[in-house]
């Protein structure tokens, strides 16, 4: 078992964390104003959304191939299940939000314009009611997504700084893996990667 997520997953995770947060802030700011920022934010919103969709699909494919490090064995079953479910929801939101946005614009008869000369085709036939429902869903899912991210972030910090169980480190770079607490599953032998990292730790 690897001690951390695959480096590509970690890179994608942090890149997407920035993009998704930026996107939620852009989206909520955009609909709050009819000032000059509206047009600029709208012009950013669509290409970033499609970028997130592509990155999320790529990430899911890599994630299926490379798996995830196991959660600490002492983590209660209910919490393990909640962790699993919340990660499924996060992936659904990362892929679902851009698709809802794209479908919504399609149903509303809007061109899905990413840049000056790049317009995506519609993915739904034009339908007024579908537009209204999808647009509302786009907002509601955005709030749920943001709440999920806040929960994810808070729990990651609790793992890293309260439980100190190595879960946060599975998504980090650098040699910050705790040397005091052996990460992951106590029952199994520590992975070669972790041992190696431990020995490479420069002496203070």
């Amino acid at each position: 078992m690897p001690g951390r997520f695959h480096p590509a997953i970690r890179l994608l995770h942090w890149t997407m964390a920035l993009l998704v947060l930026a996107m939620l802030f852009i989206g909520i700011a955009m609909v709050s104003t009819a000032g000059p920022a509206y047009a600029s934010l709208l012009a950013l919103h669509r290409p970033i959304g499609i970028a997130i969709l592509l990155l999320a699909v790529l990430r899911l494919a890599i994630r299926f191939r490379t798996g995830a490090p196991p959660l600490p064995a002492d983590l209660p079953r209910a919490q393990q299940r909640a962790a699993h479910a919340s990660h499924i929801l996060l992936y659904l939101a990362m892929i679902g939000m851009p698709l809802i946005g794209w479908a919504m614009l399609s149903a509303g008869g809007y061109p899905v314009r990413l840049s000056a000369a790049w317009v995506l085709p519609p993915i739904l036939p034009q339908d007024l009611l579908a537009y209204g429902v999808l647009r509302q869903a786009h907002t509601l899912v955005a709030f749920a997504f943001f709440a999920l991210i806040l929960g994810h972030l808070s729990i990651a910090l609790v793992h890293g700084f309260v439980r100190r169980d190595g879960v946060l480190e599975t998504m980090l770079f650098g040699k910050t893996v705790t040397d005091e607490a052996p990460p992951m599953d106590e029952a199994g032998p520590p992975s070669a990667e972790v041992v190696e990292e431990g020995t490479e730790e420069p002496a203070p």
Partner: peptide, 16 residues
């Protein structure tokens, strides 16, 4: 941008 934002709100309201 004001027209764009207003048309969008009007569109969303009447769509539902």
């Amino acid at each position: 941008p004001a027209r764009s934002a207003a048309y969008s709100s009007s569109f969303q309201r009447r769509a539902l």
